[in-house]
Nucleic acid binder design. Structure first.
Lengths: 240, 240, 240, 240
DNA sequence: TATGAATGAGTCTTCATTCAT
DNA sequence: GATGAATGAAGACTCATTCAT
């Protein structure tokens, strides 16, 4: 549970879009171009640029031309890999949500102690949110601009993400570290706390930093559900 | 701390726009019409309609014509009371944020027991959020579409709202019911929990209802900061 | 032929709209109001204001509301005395052209010497143009915005104005002061010279003043048509 | 000084917009399209059409759609080459003023005799004005619709045009053909006389034709400033 | 007669999308 | 595959004009 001393990101980091390069999980977005590798590479390129532009100006105010410019290609090219602007948003949000989700398994497996696991997951989630703060906000703001199928797809991804934390919580309950709480509610409580770092960054950044935010809120979260046994274990964890 | 048995709102309730009818706190929005009463009435009318349309389609996709139609007037009329579409959004968000804020003082003064006060504030906040769920989402999604001055104005209103809860928290600390936590961080933790009801309603509604959500999360929140003394008091409160 | 030492107008003078108060020469503009006196008074009032606004912003950019404001009445009232905005322009240009014309007879009758008459007319014309410089420009710019009947009416008024100077020129020819020139062409030459003071004021004002402009151009004009006899007479006139 | 027997233009001639094709003298108008040649070609095309429409209906009454239609393109295309409608007007007036100016140097250099030069310039000016009569009127009517920087640019072009004639006049004075008149005033007198052919065409066309107009007014102009020596030379010129 | 709120047609302008090269 | 010029539908906003009071 060593704290990264690295400060919160100054300039937002590019997302790892290898996700899009693999066999894309969904047939929801079709392309005019055959070469699968090229499709992945181009989409990855466009989505990186799109996210930057969307974060800067919002989905509706961003123009396809701007996205193309940011990517260093012509507007027409984008339409070879995507059917319309909305699909660019979909791929963008998909990448962001995937990135958030992707940060968790590593944290999850970094330890076998359930309590540490939960803590590690929360911390990882917070750090990913911080690393891609603007992107995280984007999903909040613009998911509603998606078509129903796309929106549902994103929601499903989010649920999958939640499930990872849910497992850690259930382990804690099983180990009698946590009270028998409503798992999903508690998971939401946890997740929304992490996401609040992005949602309320404009204010939170003025009164704390990421490390303290994680520490304080982890304590808030866990204190609310720890059993007596869990509380003891927690002290050990903090000490370790 | 009697629970309202009224179920969560089915269809969203109109906001009380009397706020706009009083001497409007800000000179940020000017009108072409002199008659102050008419201005208030019309703006209130337009904002009600605008919120409905904005919630349905989002700010950018909503057209002024649609807002006018919803209000039963001609598009031109709106521009007699507002300088541009963005001001309609501003007034809309202002009304929503004001409504959220406005629900708190009554809850705050409903009791003098600090612990009850905090609980009452949290409950009131959750209920207002629920009552105006779509509107609450709107502020999350579209505040970034505001101009800087308008955005700042909204943020200030939000801080004022937080302050009410902050007072309750400080009282709890003073009465030694709460640990000496970072007040503002805890307030954000509280508020984001309440707002999560709107943010994650699509899922939360499937696993719980508002009353349970309030009860469970109030317990989460308070458990995380209650002192031994506070814990005893809390039991009494729950029993009462 | 003493020169007025009064400098060119600083701020443009209101036109004498008594013209509109008399029995209006034309049935071209009808009114919803019965009382003829009121019609004259109101129209005069509106036209004064309209000319100011038109000069400031041009006909198309001026709004009826602005004209009403300038006149201190409501926009609706204007439509009680006029059928549309174009008629306001018509009445305005009519007043201006009338004013130009109206300045001439007095100058014409100020002397019986043909040469002096011509000079006096030219000088008067220049001074009226100067006094209502903006208005003069207005007729050049906006006459084309008039309907055909109104435009024709204005052109006829202009011809009537020319005729006054034409009479002076013919007298000069008859008295053998002027060569037997094409009268109407020479009149146009004269008039356009006077109007150039308004048309090119932006530059002319930098290189001369009205008095010099009149003197120099009167000499230009007359030199070009004076007979030997006329030349002698002209010297006397200048001396006198 | 042979007179062109070609009658006054019946239907207005297109302007030679090669001016716009060269390296445009001013960075005042930017374009979204890179290809400089295309920009020139399109702008030339649009300006030709715009002038036609502006002459027909005036700047304010002309719609961008109409201009596009006249040019056979979509309205959107115009905005790839121009930032707004006002810039179309600016380019239009610029072309017209340039055309007027452009006609002079050739006339100027057609002879070395100062008197002939002046005459040739005046004649050329009149003929260009006649050839583009509607366009000439346009500059009178709509220059005031330009933004200040654009208006100033046009005025400067006009001054440059005047300067060509001014040189001829100074030569005449130096050769003692002309009296020592105020050069700029006399140039204005000359130019306004030429432009009057457009300004008052509605009437002048009924009482004379272009050739006579030129001859008569050239005589008016020159007679007013010729010295004795100049008068003799002038007779020779007319005879030649 | 006077007011000014209300109307709605009409304009400029933007931008997602297409398609000839 | 890539380009970017061209399209044209759509939206914010204005303002001449009307009409209830």
């Amino acid at each position: 549970m060593a704290r990264q001393t690295k400060k919160t990101n100054p300039n937002q980091t590019d997302l790892d879009s290898s996700w899009l390069e693999g066999p894309n999980a969904l047939g929801l977005v079709t392309s005019r171009v055959e070469d699968a590798e090229l499709v992945s590479a181009r989409r990855s390129q466009f989505v990186q640029s799109a996210i930057k532009v969307f974060c800067r100006k919002g989905y509706h105010s961003a123009t396809v031309k701007e996205i193309a410019q940011e990517a260093g290609v012509s507007p027409g090219l984008i339409y070879q890999y995507v059917n319309d602007k909305e699909e660019v948003l979909f791929l963008s949000i998909q990448l962001i949500v995937y990135t958030l989700k992707n940060g968790l398994p590593q944290a999850f497996h970094s330890t076998s102690n359930p309590l540490r696991r939960f803590y590690a997951c929360f911390e990882a989630y917070c750090r990913v949110v911080d690393l891609h703060r603007d992107s995280s906000l984007l999903t909040y703001r613009e998911t509603s601009s998606l078509s129903k199928p796309h929106r549902d797809f994103i929601k499903d991804m989010e649920l999958e993400t939640n499930e990872i934390i849910a497992i850690a919580v259930r382990e804690c309950i099983q180990a009698e570290y946590f009270e028998k709480v409503n798992v999903e509610l508690f998971v939401y409580h946890t997740i929304i706390t992490a996401q609040a770092w992005a949602l309320k960054y404009w204010r939170l950044a003025k009164i704390t930093d990421l490390d303290e935010y994680i520490a304080v809120n982890a304590r808030f979260l866990m204190s609310s559900v720890l059993t007596e046994k869990g509380r003891e274990e927690f002290e050990k964890v903090l000490a370790g």
